[in-house]
Design a protein around this nucleic acid. Sequence first.
DNA 1: TTTTGAGTTGTTCGA
DNA 2: GTCGAACAACTCAAA
Length: 466
Amino acid sequence: MNAPTSLMWFRDDLRVADNPALSAAMAAGPAVALFILDEQSPGIRPLGGAARWWLHHGLNELRDSLAGLGVPLLLYRGAATNILPGLLATGSFTALHFNRRYGGPERAVDTAAKALAAAAGIEVHSHAGTLLHEPWTVATQGGTNFKVFTPFFNALQALPLRRALPRPAAQHAPAISLPAEELAAWDLLPVHPDWSHGLAATWVPGEAAARDRLGTVLEDIAGHYAQTRDRPDTDGTARLSAALRWGHLSPVEVWEALGFTLARHPDRAAGARAMMRQVAWRDFCWNLLYHHPELATANLRAEFDAFDWARPGAGVPNDEAEDHFAAWCAGSTGFGLVDAGMRQLWETGWMHNRVRMVTASFLVKNLGIHWRSGEEWFWDTLVDADAASNPANWQWVAGCGADASPFFRIFNPQLQAKKFDPRGAYVARFAPLSPGEPIVELGPSRAGALAALARMKESGGTGVEG
DNA sequence: TTTTGAGTTGTTCGA
DNA sequence: GTCGAACAACTCAAA
């Protein structure tokens, strides 16, 4: 008879430090780790190509660092509710631990998993490890969820934050041997063609590199972040989005470190404070998804259902929209900043925050293409896209989201380039060839967007149905 | 219940 | 070159 052994189910928390579920599992005795590549459960969104590349490397590192702690990692593919019963029936485990998820389909899976474990006589512990605060704990005085960021941020800061946990101490590995799958067999890495060279030249996925970067951010970036975060031609942003997406760092660890920096280094306080605001935006987006599981497909503001966006590839043929969308994806719109951003995305799996706004505004407003088309492209090409932030921010740009940018706020890509890439270094880096003929004229396309907004308001009346 | 103040990231136009 | 107003009125959160 083996010692009571816990099963730790990793999902979006590929780290060993400040991982509440892992720490709890290991505190109880021997532990085995589990990761399930679940693309079968209903409603679960299959990972994009760039995300699959990142996951491969992230799991590789996690397996090694867990091995150092005496925790073997088991890999399986399939619907979690199909995989778990067999594992739980081996009699090897007395407890199941995981950090909670907040998307609709993921919550349904986790609820089912709890029931399966209970039926197998195994205790289940879900932990808070992925956000600063659980979505249901940040509420207005009326008990509703916030729809505007600033009051959300104020309420969040007033809540007591848990302390980050240390990396668990190594222990003896459990004497359990179960058949599992090989990571290499999952084919997460691209071949024929292998388009991942730019990603590999830009990123080192995993917890160790993420913590290194956090150190650099605290030492070198925080001092100028408040001034440089809008400058794509500099290393002016934290570049921690993918680390947070995959849970190589917990937001609590990042927040705590920024808090220390803020308190100890007055010259970095403004930058640290601005970064904390950004980390809170991530919580805000997950809060929105928790309360609106259809965030990726349904306009948060229903009056935008009447907006006549073009939707390439979704039924109604529209040659111009197809061509425009293809040019946007390929970075050949003829606008330098837009093209540089789209090529940075394709090449590196990441795009500077300000350029994301410019490219998104251009797609939705100047090209009149539905935010969902852009959201899907970003989902497939970004290494940091998650199910909350990606759709929430696309809706924000499109004007149909929470706390949304007014629709008439239409970025001028030429003016934005002048302001934020004044020497053209960013455009030169990613779109060095002189841009071809612009695919639209800025003035008329801007006017067209405002006219479409007016038509929407006319057709929808007050926006209140019935 | 009513009122009040405020709301991540912009652009254009005219004085 | 710089500045304020307009864009278009609306929703949200708290008093």
